[in-house]
Amino acid sequence: MIACRSLSRSRKGVPVAQPGGIRHLAGTIAASLLTVAAFVSAPDAARAEDKPISIYFVGCAAPTGFHGYLARGAEEAGKNLGVNVTYVYPDQLTIPNQVQKIEEAIAAQANGIAVCAFAEDKAYAEIAARAKEAGIAFGSAAAPPSGAQIRDPNDFFLFRTGSDEAAAGKLTAQRLLSMGVKGRVVVANQQPGDASCQLRATSEIDALKAAGIEADFLELTMDPGQQSEALFNYLRVHPDTAAATSTCDVIDGFLSAKADSGRNDLILTGYDIVAQSLAAIKDGRQAFTIDQQQFWRGYMPVLLLTHYLKYGLIEGNYFLTGPTIVDKDNVERVSALVKEGYR
């Protein structure tokens, strides 16, 4: 089972002194102390009764869209493995807000915590140590540092499972090169503050440049109209541009710019699975999109935590859920799985 909680904490019942004298107040305090004592001894009693494993999945955002697939993966793992999964998330994705949610999971005496880590390791070092002190298994639902494959025995995350963004950028470049791209490639980022998008862009540009291809970075806004006009004019300045990559999932502006410029030969690539991309891949306007199989990013942490808690199993290699490519060859199969909630 899965339960979603918002940022705000639920208020605990606080005993309030009622009029009626000291005897009444003393009675209230005594009853409160008894209640607290009962709560304090509850985990031991529950363990004695073989209480189901409780896993908290601390996400990056509300379980909608991309993050909805993560939550769905965690939920399905919980069902399959017979463990309780609680998905919690910060209203605004900042390190303090996310750490606050981890603290709440520790306070709730979870058996295991999986965090959708989005910042550098040191941001989680302190809270990971506190989780360890409390005897809570602590893992990361995000990719390991780029290039790292074998798990570091000193890693404070028990496991890391996610898509390697640098590998994703490199994969895009490799696919473009295999398609015979020559001349110039433009790699655009609509969310310049997003580290994932930036890493995708940087690694693609580096890989292309290493292969002797001119590659430019273009900073855009989220507005599709402004995206379209910026790319349209970029193509005017650089008519030798053979391909354009959108490092975020909003591809409308790219499709519009391709149509407006009459550049039917322009190869468009993108990230993540969205309706426009699937339709554009089917009809040939977009060559491919990079998929990080986010369902697995939810499923695998719950599986790994459960097996660690039950059997003491720890992964030897970090588990990469992506990148993979969705193109004309597999788009129909992927579309069917999207409808079922797995892609």
């Binding site: 509300a62 909608t64 993050h67 909805g68 969205v274 309706a275």
Partner: peptide, 9 residues
């Protein structure tokens, strides 16, 4: 965001 589920339509 809730109505679209975060995805484009």
């Amino acid at each position: 965001i809730a109505l679209t589920g975060g995805f484009p339509m």
